[in-house]
Nucleic acid binder design. Structure first.
Lengths: 229, 229
DNA sequence: TAAGCGTAGATCCTATAGGAAATGCGATTC
DNA sequence: GAATCGCATTTCCTATAGGATCTACGCTTA
């Protein structure tokens, strides 16, 4: 996410910290690193066959996403999975931010946006939905891209930061580790409704459809939580 | 901000990275590190007489606040000051998040909250307002505490994260470097209005007063931007 | 005069080593 | 039997060193 490979070149010896970040992300999403597990800097360095320095930097970045937590002089631990209450809180927070994003993005009326949104929906339809992160990663990225496109088109870097900070956008998908994606059909349908509002240029409708979508996701996530427990 | 000193002990040998973080923060707020200036890891390490490792970690944390930006293999640079347009965007983002915080916080009706808010207002009145960060730091902290108390009382960790992510709460005050605080009287008055709504337990009024406050701050910040340019 | 190249310096990135603190376990004592 | 103390191991934190890359400056050449 935060890293981007430079366009020119090709191989472009990537920074090690990026590899470590990626490896930790996959491990977290697959559920291999369970909630509460301590993440030893030295240990992880041995496991990935690198020095502790890039591991330290990768963990510092991960901490900002909320995936791990740091206690001074005690190291990092994997953040706990969301409780149903926290998941509901996350959706409430999204209900504050994302409808506003949709409204503003629709106001700006970027002519390229509808096409990009449609592409994201198509990718969502095509993506596999298996239980391992390697499988549902494409789904996650398509879903994320849809919401991020809207957040970016709102053209307000701070709202974008706020959206990013929710982070739960990432964490939410940790639930799918070992389960697979469960709400694809609903999500595709609701995304399409939002797209329609954008095509029509109806900002107020876009806001409302976004509300509908997130409230739907909220209810479905509650159901998933109960299944898992 | 993000760091907390452990309660017991007292001296509690702080982590060096925290000192570096603090030093960089002060330098940024005072305007000693101007926008666009490269922040050399090795150079900063020499200047602060530490090794590059804690500097690297401090910069990684600062990057998450938006105060500095990192280009892979090229190091860090001080993020540019906000343009008037960006400042307006920041206020628009606050208008999305903070009124919702106020509404929810008032709904929760923590009996301790009004007293704490009043204390924050009193501190705001008492704080000096000079042009250097050392002088107006107390003011900044009292203002920050007022808004943060409300954000925390909303009792939704994600909205709190979103509020933190704005970060502009910090950056905004970079404008006061060399100028001093300019809108203290207005801020105190508006904060008091918000407090009244909390005391009355009127959530809808709290939301509205927060809107009034931020819109006021928006207009005043625009004025400051013009003065500075 | 302007453009291209090469070298020197600075900087980033990674690895390694060592001191300090924290955790865990066993022995001792009340 | 339970609690406390002490030691060993693990882990974090910081410093130092070296290789790789980028930047800047001066020189050569057309």
């Amino acid at each position: 996410m935060a890293t981007k490979n430079q366009a020119s070149g090709g191989v472009s010896r990537q920074v090690l910290a990026d590899h470590v970040y990626e490896a930790l992300l996959v491990a977290l999403m697959d559920g291999r690193l369970e909630a509460g597990t301590p993440v030893s800097i030295d240990g992880m360095a041995r496991e990935l066959d690198v020095s502790p320095t890039p591991v330290r930097e990768a963990l510092a970045r991960l901490e900002a996403t909320g995936m791990v937590r740091r206690a001074a002089l005690r190291g990092y631990r994997v953040a706990p999975l969301f409780s149903p209450e926290e998941l509901a809180d996350l959706m409430d927070a999204r209900l504050v931010i994302e409808p506003a994003n949709a409204f503003m993005a629709c106001k700006h009326a970027d002519p390229q946006l509808p096409g990009q949104l449609e592409q994201a929906i198509e990718d969502l339809k095509a993506a596999p939905r298996g239980p391992s992160f390697a499988e549902f990663r494409a789904y996650w990225e398509a879903d994320e891209r849809f919401h991020r496109l809207i957040a970016e088109s709102a053209d307000n870097q701070f709202l974008l930061s706020a959206y990013n900070a929710l982070g739960g956008q990432v964490q939410r998908f940790r639930f799918f580790g070992g389960l697979g994606v469960t709400d694809a059909d609903y999500a595709i349908s609701e995304h399409t409704e939002i797209l329609k509002a954008f095509v029509a240029g109806n900002a107020e409708l876009a806001r409302q459809k976004m509300i509908d979508h997130i409230e739907g996701a909220k209810q479905r996530s509650q159901h998933d939580s109960e299944v898992r427990s």
